[in-house]
């Protein structure tokens, strides 16, 4: 299987801190891949570096054969890599409809067929009655649904999800995982950081474990899940 997204030796440095050190990973089309690690291991910085949000000190990001290392955030998003950052980042003073319209009117969003847009909205019935409401007034769960629906409006090929279930009620988290698997079943590719490690490993194909900015372990999700020695520190098991 050839990789859709190929990250090679990427490093990220903030002032004097090496947040990410020579990390390489690859994601094949249709895979769900998760990055595990403690807080501060460099997971978010890695996703940010792929999306162009965080400057890379070195390394390359190649997507579908094209080198995106030095591309801007907007260009990378335009290629179909969509980052849903931690904390949702909906536009609080804009209505739900306007949040969605912003994505629909991007060059990539305009190419998405109307029935595809409608089917995305069908997945989030909770948003239907809230279209005219400022997004800042939604609950955390509603904001998360909006953030993912907004990303899906541009028909991304790869979703980069940073802690999507943070602060969500259990029932909403169930829906979130359904959405992720459904996106994959429809041909999408996912790279996810998620505190619900057991659950994420259950839907993931492969996993990388990061520690202090480096990848220390990688393998099939089932094999990583079976590693007893990782369970207490990384999986939140007691």
């Amino acid at each position: 299987m050839t990789a859709l997204l190929e990250v090679t030796d990427v490093s990220v440095q903030y002032r004097h801190v090496n947040a990410v050190r020579d990390v390489s990973l690859h994601v094949a089309e249709g895979e769900i891949v998760t990055v595990l690690g403690l807080n501060g291991a460099g997971k978010s910085s890695l996703l940010g570096a792929i999306a162009g949000r965080v400057p890379k000190r070195s390394g390359t990001v190649v997507f579908d054969g094209e080198n995106l290392t030095r591309r801007s955030m907007a260009r990378i998003a335009g290629k179909g890599i969509s980052l849903v950052p931690e904390g949702r980042h909906v536009f609080p003073r804009m209505t739900v409809r306007e949040n969605l319209r912003l994505a629909e009117t991007t060059p990539r969003g305009r190419a998405v067929a109307a029935d595809v847009r409608a089917s995305v909205l069908d997945m989030y019935p909770a948003l239907h009655g809230l279209m005219g409401r400022p997004a800042g007034l939604l609950s955390g769960g509603e904001q998360q649904q909006l953030a993912i629906a907004r990303a899906l409006m541009t028909a991304p090929r790869v979703l980069l999800l940073d802690e999507p279930s943070l602060g969500l009620a259990p029932s909403i988290t169930d829906r979130l995982f359904e959405t992720i698997t459904r996106f994959r079943d429809d041909g999408g590719t996912v790279l996810i950081i998620e505190q619900n490690v057991r659950r994420t490993l259950a839907i993931a194909d492969r996993a990388y474990v990061m520690s202090r900015g480096q990848v220390v372990l990688s393998g099939d999700a089932a094999d990583v899940a079976a590693r007893e020695d990782l369970s207490s520190s990384y999986f939140g098991d007691t």
């Binding site: 907007a74 980042h89 912003l102 991007t106």
Partner: peptide, 24 residues
């Protein structure tokens, strides 16, 4: 207008606007 929407989006969250695919 679409451009007006983008102006407001940039005013609210410059980074997220770009992550959606809007050139600043």
């Amino acid at each position: 207008t679409t451009v007006g929407l983008r102006v407001r989006a940039v005013a609210e969250d410059f980074t997220m606007t770009q992550l959606i695919g809007v050139k600043p």
